[in-house]
Amino acid sequence: MEVRTIKVFTTVDNINLHTQVVDMSMTYGQQFGPTYLDGADVTKIKPHNSHEGKTFYVLPNDDTLRVEAFEYYHTTDPSFLGRYMSALNHTKKWKYPQVNGLTSIKWADNNCYLATALLTLQQIELKFNPPALQDAYYRARAGEAANFCALILAYCNKTVGELGDVRETMSYLFQHANLDSCKRVLNVVCKTCGQQQTTLKGVEAVMYMGTLSYEQFKKGVQIPCTCGKQATKYLVQQESPFVMMSAPPAQYELKHGTFTCASEYTGNYQCGHYKHITSKETLYCIDGALLTKSSEYKGPITDVFYKENSYTTTIK
């Protein structure tokens, strides 16, 4: 009895394709271990004539594949690729409408935090270190965002349907971005203890939790000093293409032309909904596939993004 075979390709990165001759009487799992086709788990399936010449994702289970996976995804987590594939199996079914010149995501599976993050990423200057993220990001900007969303979920250790947080998501993504040249110098002034300067680099240099107003941050924000008295913390120097200011959701007025974009969060910790506000020729609110415009805006804002380049204080 002759062994019926077909020729397929296996890959971990969709760049390096490895030619395989597979036995049609055995499952993919018996031949390769966990195997995925377009995100779908085909591990328990036997090869079919229609699979001839198709590319299958496999887990990096030998040295060659491990090197290829690390170079593309910059992670050695053995569960990463499987999590990416199972997320992709959902995100490829989502709709990605162009809204006001940006790629958004039609609401499904509690994905409003991903839509808000995706919209924000198209408006701030950011370059990702893992080629996987950078490639998928370019495709997302062009309207094909399924891979990018699935990668975000995998890097953030999230599953489809789980509630997510924009600030946490951005923080994970910033860790995989090139923020080497970003720098922030802060000064804390206390009447009792004097003053202390701190220099922050990388992710810490672009994120701040405690106030939404970048102007206020430049002037000074009140913080408790270690001595128990009130101290003032203010920005001395900022070198970065953008800054992200966050605070627990509270009524906040966004003035046209003073910011790049913002995240609105309605609801409580267990259950809520994100919308995205962007400042173009007027203010726009993007909620999944829905767009509304207004000249002014007041609502429960939790993150505001500002364009920056270089700032030095005039406070002496």
Rank of each mutant, 00 (worst) to 15 (best):
T258V: 04
S279E: 00
F174R: 01
D77K: 01
A262D: 00
A205F: 03
Y265E: 00
K7M: 15
P60Q: 12
C190P: 05
T278F: 04
G228C: 01
T314W: 15
P60S: 07
Q31L: 13
T198G: 01
L186D: 03
M209P: 00
E253H: 08
V12C: 10
T116Q: 04
T64G: 12
C112G: 07
G143L: 01
Q196H: 14
M245N: 06
Q251A: 07
V22H: 01
T302D: 06
E308H: 07
H176W: 15
K191P: 15
D135K: 10
V221F: 06
Y57P: 02
V243D: 03
A177S: 07
Q237S: 12
N187Q: 12
M244W: 06
T258M: 06
A108L: 02
L200W: 00
D109N: 10
C149E: 01
A136T: 06
D303Y: 00
G101Q: 07
G53E: 14
A87L: 07
L163R: 15
F148E: 03
V58E: 05
S213C: 08
K229A: 13
G257M: 04
T5M: 14
N157F: 07
T169D: 07
A154E: 04
K255M: 09
D23H: 06
G210W: 00
K7Y: 08
D287G: 05
G220W: 01
K218I: 03
A250I: 12
A231H: 05
R66P: 07
I6S: 08
M85T: 09
M244E: 02
E2F: 09
E215V: 05
L235E: 01
E296Y: 13
A154S: 07
I152A: 08
K95W: 13
A132C: 07
K93E: 11
V189A: 10
L200H: 12
T226L: 09
Y138T: 14
V160P: 07
E204G: 12
T43C: 05
C149D: 02
G53M: 13
G288T: 00
Y36R: 01
P248G: 06
G299H: 10
S310D: 11
T43P: 03
G143W: 02
M26I: 13
L153M: 10
N147W: 08
Y155K: 03
L121M: 10
M170R: 01
V166N: 04
A132Y: 02
E125H: 06
K158W: 00
P241Q: 11
K233S: 11
D165S: 15
L133T: 02
G257Y: 09
V42Y: 13
G161F: 02
A154F: 01
G82L: 15
T260G: 03
G288N: 08
S246L: 00
Q122P: 01
D63R: 02
M26D: 12
A140R: 03
K44E: 14
E68F: 02
T159L: 12
T27W: 00
C149W: 09
I301G: 00
T43K: 08
E52V: 11
V206C: 01
K293L: 09
Y297Q: 03
E52T: 10
K106T: 12
Q222V: 11
T35G: 09
Q197N: 06
E215C: 05
C182M: 04
T266P: 00
Q196K: 13
K93T: 13
E264C: 10
L119K: 07
A136I: 01
V160E: 07
T266Q: 01
M209T: 15
W107Q: 00
A177Y: 06
L114M: 09
L126A: 04
K307I: 08
Y274A: 05
V185F: 01
V243T: 02
K233L: 15
T292K: 11
V203I: 08
E281L: 05
L118C: 06
A117M: 06
P248M: 12
Y172D: 08
H256D: 07
T313V: 12
H256K: 12
L133S: 02
F9P: 04
K280V: 09
Y284W: 11
L173I: 13
E52W: 10
P130I: 05
V12R: 09
G299Q: 08
Y234N: 02
G267Y: 12
K255Y: 00
S213R: 10
N129P: 03
T91D: 11
M24T: 11
G161Q: 05
E162W: 00
Y138N: 15
R167Q: 11
Y306N: 00
E296R: 09
A154N: 03
G299T: 04
E215R: 05
F80G: 02
P78C: 09
A154Q: 05
L186R: 05
T103L: 04
N111Q: 00
Y155R: 03
H18F: 01
S279W: 10
T116Y: 02
K92Q: 14
S279N: 10
I223A: 13
A87M: 05
K307W: 05
Q237G: 04
K219Y: 05
P47V: 07
K46W: 15
H51I: 04
A146L: 03
N157P: 03
Y265C: 00
T199I: 11
S279I: 05
Y96E: 05
H176I: 03
V188G: 00
L153Q: 02
N89I: 12
Q134S: 09
K46L: 14
Y172K: 14
Q238R: 01
P97M: 00
L173F: 00
W107E: 03
M245L: 04
C112F: 07
H276D: 03
Y274H: 00
V99C: 10
T76R: 11
V304R: 05
T103E: 03
P224C: 11
N147C: 11
D62H: 10
V21H: 13
P97N: 03
A231Y: 07
E168R: 15
E168D: 02
A150W: 03
C261H: 04
L81S: 00
K316H: 15
K218R: 03
V3G: 13
K229H: 10
P249A: 03
R83E: 06
G299V: 05
L81C: 08
F70R: 07
Y72N: 07
G210Y: 02
A177R: 03
K127V: 08
Y284Q: 10
T292H: 08
F56W: 03
F32T: 12
S263R: 02
M207E: 06
K233Q: 14
A115Q: 10
N89E: 14
L179D: 04
Q175T: 08
Q196Y: 14
Q216T: 09
P47K: 01
Q237I: 06
K316Q: 15
T292A: 07
Q123T: 07
I315A: 15
K46C: 11
M209Y: 15
S294Y: 14
Q222M: 12
Y234F: 06
E264V: 15
R139N: 12
I223N: 02
L114S: 02
Y96W: 05
Y84M: 03
Q270M: 09
Q222T: 10
Y311G: 04
K255Q: 12
N14D: 11
L133I: 06
I315V: 15
E2N: 12
W107P: 03
S25Y: 11
L290R: 09
N268I: 15
P249N: 05
D165E: 15
L235K: 01
G82N: 14
W94F: 08
G53T: 10
A115F: 08
T278M: 12
W94T: 07
V188M: 09
V206R: 00
H74W: 04
Y172C: 14
Y252M: 07
S50H: 10
Q20G: 11
A289Q: 11
A142L: 11
I301E: 06
M207Q: 05
P97I: 12
Y113A: 08
A108D: 06
S294D: 09
L186P: 01
F32C: 15
A177W: 00
Q230S: 12
Y155C: 03
C193F: 01
H74C: 05
Q175L: 10
S181K: 14
N147V: 09
P60R: 05
A289I: 09
T314V: 10
T64C: 15
Y214A: 00
T211W: 03
L283F: 13
K293F: 11
